[in-house]
Design a protein around this nucleic acid. Structure first.
Lengths: 203, 203
DNA sequence: TTGTTTGCTAAACACTGTTCAGTAAGTTTG
DNA sequence: CAAACTTACTGAACAGTGTTTAGCAAACAA
């Protein structure tokens, strides 16, 4: 009686197929220019079929949201090799910004869009929690190494995260129009370096 | 021949009426739950009429975007009275965060939503430029007073702005689900204070 | 070979932003 | 004043959206 198992497997494959094609469309056309009908066309099924695998569009978006976190955490792995904790922290920030600039649509989905965050349980936060845990770990190392004074790790990590996040949020949502377009990357880099320097001296 | 003048005036009044009612709807129902038809119902005109006064929905949103900046700059005025430049800076940050929390929809429109920023000219940035100028001024004062070292004012201001912005962006878009809901305000406040302290010591 | 379950879809519902032909009132001209 | 022109407005449509539901054919179980 392997039938139920096979059906279960086929169901999961279908879910992955939908997510795969949906992600491709979203990444090339942008999230608000892709409709359920577009995705249905791509996978050569009717739009209604998608609703047999996902409660609604937001649930589909949230599934991709999780994929985004997986990709991001993967990109953070190399910097585990760095030995100096502060250098590790700086590189982590740089990676965060790089990820945002190189994967604007994914980053948007993960940290800016309202859509996928409609109503979710505690268990939906494992990915985010994991990524934040990584940061807290490095901050703790900085404190243990005497580079930072001993403050509350959670608040300190939160301070650093949101500061770095600010750059990406303003940049991705094109709120830097007061600067000449060509200056923006330079200003952002200067600001980031200044932030790191300030942390080093002041924390 | 005051007829053309009267017509001009009536046209402007109509624009303001539309904006007024649109803003009311947006602020109570949220931006993505208000349609052109809703606004048309409220002002008791046909939906098509709105398109005689605004090119499209984004132009309407951008007009409100400007109103948001006016309100924000107005809320910044009181802190001009403070004499200590660093205190002024801290209070400015606090005001920014308070404005975001108390006017989430407006703040969203001003700094997070993509819709109103479709394609705009240099001249559309006067409000944003003005607000950023205010910040640069205070940062300059801090440097002149010897509280901060003399770095590039623009980069330093940008660093401070985006750091503060980060809190609001993550909070408003509900990306702090890894913390217990009741802890969030405390953590945010701790993080903000730590940031100010770090600036004071490290910049 | 029945009866039941499953997977899927066509069609509809209630929306959305936007356009355009047509109308009725206001304004200008003869 | 009457005719011509201008302006402000609207009803209806277009092309799209997310989502639901009734029904159908194939796969499975008895």
């Amino acid at each position: 009686m392997g039938i139920t198992e096979r059906k279960e497997r086929e169901r999961e494959e279908m879910r992955q197929l939908i997510l795969e094609e949906a992600l491709k469309l979203f990444l090339t056309n942008g999230f608000d220019k892709v409709s359920i009908r577009n995705i249905a066309d791509k996978i050569e099924y009717s739009p209604a079929t998608i609703y047999l695998y996902f409660k609604d569009k937001n649930e589909l978006l949230f599934a991709l949201h999780q994929r985004g976190f997986a990709k991001m955490v993967a990109e953070f792995q190399p910097l585990r090799l760095l030995s100096d904790p502060f250098e590790k922290l700086v590189e982590m920030g740089r990676s965060y910004i790089r990820f945002a600039v190189e994967n604007p649509e994914l980053f948007d989905l993960m940290f800016i869009m309202t859509a996928p965050m409609d109503k979710l349980d505690k268990e939906d936060w494992v990915e985010g929690d994991q990524a934040f845990g990584l940061l807290m770990q490095v901050v703790q190392e900085c404190m243990d190494a005497g580079i930072f004074q001993k403050h509350d790790v959670q608040s300190t990590s939160m301070m650093i995260w949101s500061s770095i996040h600010g750059y990406t949020a303003l940049f991705l949502r094109k709120r830097l129009g007061m600067f000449a377009e060509c200056d923006v990357p330079v200003i952002m880099d200067d600001a980031f370096n200044l932030f790191c320097e300030t942390l080093r001296k002041g924390l």
